[in-house]
Amino acid sequence: MTALQIIFLLTAAVTFGSALLVVTSHNLVHAALSLVVTLFGVAVLFALLDAGFLAVVQVTLYIGAIAIMIIFAIMLTRRVMMDSGPQTNTQWWAGALVALALFVALSWVLMQVPSLQALSAPGATLPTLSGDSVKALGLAFVDPNQYVIPFEVASVMLLVAFVGAIVVAGESKK
């Protein structure tokens, strides 16, 4: 077993364990902190795949912004220190069904990716990118033949969210 495989197995185990803690923990803040560990584990997996940019963006956005906002919201809402409410409600089976459907759908989409099929063949090696991967990613985002439309649509969506937040939070003028 190579060092890379050992690191991968350790990271995967920690990620999986903390993901279980997210849904089984009785304390909401503990669940949110376990979510942070899970997201960090995913960032390590990105780093292991030589996707350094995705790894740091994962940490900056999902831990630095989203997880901190979740924890802040939980702290503000009620006294979670002593909170140990019921773990599930009557709709737990619907949630389980949706999660299962999402898992199946994601797995099916991943199976359709041709480069992944090539990878599962025996003796296949990981493709390597020559040159600066960050530069390649940046150029791909603004290249009309590649991802410029999804990139711009995502930007417009974020702008709409921004404007919506300002409208909701802003002072109402009579």
Partner: peptide
Amino acid sequence: DLNVGVLYIAAVGSLGTLAIMMGGWSSN
């Protein structure tokens, strides 16, 4: 020498924010 060094600094800095929030909340 990471090719995303500047972003890495920003990412790691946000962990410090999390640490301070954890300390403040857990002290009761």
